[in-house]
Design a protein around this nucleic acid. Structure first.
Lengths: 134, 134
DNA sequence: GTCCTTGCAAAGCGTTTGCACAGAA
DNA sequence: TTCTGTGCAAACGCTTTGCAAGGAC
C-alpha cells in the first residue's frame, strides 16, 4: 500500500481503504484515461473479489471529493483521470487514443462573457497522432 | 419544407426526405444542442409516426456526412449540433445549460506536438452563467 | 422488380439502485 | 450497537440491431 496515496486520500477526507488506494494508485500510474471496465479488469488480478459496483462507488466518491474527474471525449464511455496539474488533451481520430499534452493557452474577450464566471477551461485537439501519421 | 435545407442535404449527398429535412431544420433553428429525446419529442408534434430509431438513423447519417456533430460535454447524454462556423462552448455548472460563445483562440507550441496533425480544436469553458450568477 | 426510408420490438451495454453482509468503531 | 465498505443482482436508460412493411424509382 502506498503511503503517499493514503495521505492524498486522507487530505481529501476519504478514508483510505485498501480498494480505494488501489484504484487511486491505478489512476496515478496509468495516465491513459481508463474507463470503469479497464480499471476493473486490471485490479481484478490483485483483488479477486472486486466488483464493478465498487469501482463505480469509489470513482463517484473521488469525483465528489474532487480528486478525480471524468474526461468526456466524443464517445459514450466515461473515462477518468486524477485531478492534477493542468494539461490539455489530443485525440487521434484514427486510433482513438487520447493523449495528455502540455496545456494549451486560450484567449477570449471577457466582454462577450460579461456576467459569466469562468472557473475552468478545457481544450481538446483532434487529429492524427504521430503513430498513425505515417 | 425548407428549400435551402433541401439544398444543404443534397450537397452533402443526402436525399432530402421529409423527416430528414425536419430534423435538419430543427437543428438549424434550435441552437441548444438537443439530445435525441428532445428532437424526438419536438418533432412528434408534427410527425406523429416518428420513431426514435429514425432520429438515431438520421443523426447517424448526418454525422457520417459531416453536416452535424456530437457535442460531448461531461454528461452521459449525446447532444447534437449542425456543423457550422466555429464557436466554442460554455457550460454552466449550476443550471447545466450549454451556451454557444464566440470562438476562443488557442495557443500551443507545435514543437511539443511534432508528428501530430491537428485537424480540430475545441474549447469548453465551465463556470457560472449570467442567470445563475446573481 | 430493386433500393431506400421508416419504425416496431428486442437486444445490448454501461451505469445506477436496492439490499444485504461483513468488519470496524 | 451503529456506521462504513463492499458486492451481488436487478433495474434502468440510452443506443444499436434485426427485421419487416411501405413507398420511391
Amino acid at each position: 500500500m502506498n503511503k503517499s496515496s493514503e495521505t492524498h486520500l486522507r487530505e481529501a477526507n476519504i478514508s483510505p481503504s485498501y480498494t480505494r488506494v488501489m484504484i487511486y494508485d491505478y489512476l496515478k500510474i496509468n495516465h491513459n484515461h481508463p474507463n470503469v471496465d479497464e480499471i476493473y479488469k486490471a485490479l481484478c488480478k490483485k483483488l479477486h473479489t472486486l466488483s464493478k459496483t465498487t469501482v463505480y462507488n469509489v470513482l463517484k466518491l473521488f469525483l465528489e471529493k474532487d480528486i478525480a474527474r471524468k474526461v468526456t471525449i466524443s464517445s459514450s464511455e466515461d473515462k477518468y483521470e486524477l485531478t492534477c496539474e493542468d494539461h490539455s488533451h489530443f485525440k487521434c481520430k484514427v486510433c482513438n487514443k487520447l493523449y495528455d499534452i502540455p496545456l494549451v493557452k486560450t484567449e477570449y474577450s471577457t466582454a462577450t462573457l460579461k456576467g459569466f464566471k469562468v472557473n475552468n477551461e478545457e481544450v481538446l485537439l483532434t487529429g492524427i497522432c504521430v503513430n498513425c501519421n505515417k
